[in-house]
């Protein structure tokens, strides 16, 4: 019984997160200016990280946690680099 509740909750949560990733990807595609696209990319990163965490709960392995940590790190670096590029026109000066 408890396993059934957990499996259905995880299916619902993964559906929610997939729709959220679709919304972020749509904003990444249609965003009127560059900063909208960067914001969509950042949201896409965070949603993918949360989706990997729900995968980790579903399979019961802690391996997904480390992948989620790497995605969080890379997302932060990518968004900061893109914002810096918008601000100055070059990433490293």
């Amino acid at each position: 019984m408890s396993a059934t509740i957990l499996v259905w909750a995880l299916v619902v949560a993964q559906t929610f997160l997939a729709i959220a990733m679709g919304c972020a990807a749509f904003r990444l595609l249609i965003g009127p200016r560059a900063q909208d696209r960067i914001l969509g990319l950042d949201t896409l990163y965070v949603n993918a990280m949360l989706l990997l965490l729900t995968f980790g709960i579903r399979t019961g392995s802690t391996l997904y946690f480390e992948i989620a940590l790497v995605i969080a790190l890379l997302g932060f670096v990518a968004t900061v680099a893109l914002a810096k590029f918008l601000m100055r026109g070059e990433v490293i000066e």
């Binding site: 909750a9 995880l10 619902v12 949560a13 993964q14 929610f16 997160l17 729709i19 959220a20 990733m21 919304c23 972020a24 904003r27 914001l39 969509g40 949201t43 965070v46 949603n47 949360l50 729900t54 709960i57």
Partner: peptide, 15 residues
């Protein structure tokens, strides 16, 4: 988990 995923969906819809 469902509450967190639902709030994330609301945030992305707002975006």
């Amino acid at each position: 988990v469902v509450a967190g995923a639902g709030l994330t969906l609301i945030g992305s819809l707002g975006l």
